[in-house]
Amino acid sequence: MNAPRILLTGSSGQVGHALTSVLQHAQLITPGRAELDLANAQAIADYVDKVRPDLIINPAAYTAVDRAESEPHLAEAINGVAPAMLAEAAERLGIPLIHFSTDYVFDGLHETCYAETQPTSPVNVYGRSKRNGELAALERCEAVWILRTSWVYGAHGKNFLNTILRLAQERDSMQIVDDQWGSPTWSRTIASVVATMLGSADQRATLTERIRHTRGIYHLTATGHTNWHQYACRVVEAMSSLGLHARLPVQAIAAIATEQYPTPARRPRNSRLCTDKISQTFGIELPPWDRALAQCLQEIQNERSSTRNT
């Protein structure tokens, strides 16, 4: 039985990088931007027709939330049009598509966690472009999973965790918003869940049928929730176990309201996503956010120890 050929976009990003580690049984096709420009609709169609994969996984995205306010056309091209072209190509070839989306498709006004069935109402350009990508993928491909995640972090890449680890060594004080709530989600958790969802279906027809049978939107985040201030404090508290000296004491991390930290793009106050559907459909137990964070920090410590010893 041949291993599936998977076209993986954004392999240098947080989720893409994690997926390359867990999908080692597959033949991964991981084009860089020079090979596959996701802002070029025709180039996407041509590339997929050329490589003819058995599955497309699309974690690539325009993620500069604030810059998107001044670059709406580029954000829409990558987050809205590109998923449409990938979905069309997948349907044309009779293969499935896994597309990643975000909690930012919601306005954050709901008082409890958001279910997949609740209406979307994004409050910024980035969120609108991601919602458009969701709708296009669902409309144009029968065998499709849309995986919404939130507050993604990992040992590699630009994210809140790595920013706090750096700033805590550079600053004497810090102000962090405490009225935006969500579930920090480790990229490794996301990749492991995708691998579980795919299972051992190596044959193209079986894989396509599995995804067609369970098509739709799923929320994929860690369980539990926190705010950005609590999250930052947890990271700084753990720094000593990493062998890192934190110049910044936890007590010097001030909690502020969103209004005290204005940004070009509005953020939803509530980014909590209900994960019951993915757990029940695939029998997946998602980890609590703080336990996954501890595991990620341990990985960072191990990598740095290994680097010092070589």
Rank of each mutant, 00 (worst) to 15 (best):
V125P: 09
V81S: 00
R266L: 11
G13Q: 14
W228I: 04
A87N: 13
D290T: 06
A89W: 14
G80N: 07
R166H: 11
T149A: 11
P83L: 15
Q14Y: 06
D37N: 07
A201N: 03
A222G: 06
V123C: 07
V236T: 12
L167S: 05
A252I: 10
Q301C: 09
A255G: 07
G283S: 02
L207T: 03
E35R: 07
N124Q: 07
L93F: 09
G283Q: 06
Y261P: 00
A155D: 15
V177Y: 07
V51E: 09
A255K: 14
Y104I: 05
S129H: 06
I284M: 08
L273N: 03
S21V: 08
P31W: 10
Q203Y: 06
M174G: 03
L28A: 01
D202M: 11
E237G: 01
H17G: 03
S12Y: 11
F106L: 03
A26N: 12
E91A: 05
E285I: 14
H229W: 14
A292I: 15
W145N: 01
A26V: 03
S192L: 04
L55Y: 12
V236W: 15
I253Q: 07
L36M: 05
A61M: 10
M85E: 09
I29A: 00
R210Y: 01
P119N: 01
C113E: 15
I57Y: 13
G283K: 05
L28E: 03
P72T: 12
T275W: 12
D46L: 14
V65A: 04
Q27M: 05
A84H: 07
V81K: 00
P83W: 15
I256P: 02
A255T: 10
I98A: 00
A294Q: 14
I98K: 03
S306W: 15
L167C: 02
L19N: 04
A90K: 14
T163V: 11
R140L: 14
L293T: 03
Q260R: 10
Q203V: 07
S305L: 13
R131I: 08
S306K: 15
R269D: 00
E116A: 08
P96M: 10
I57F: 09
V194Y: 06
G133C: 02
A84E: 11
D66I: 08
I78T: 07
R291D: 09
T258Y: 03
A89R: 12
L135R: 12
I256A: 01
M85Q: 09
S12L: 13
A41S: 09
F100K: 08
V250L: 08
D202F: 13
A232Y: 04
A143I: 07
Q169W: 12
I176T: 01
W181M: 05
L36S: 01
M85K: 10
S200F: 11
I300M: 13
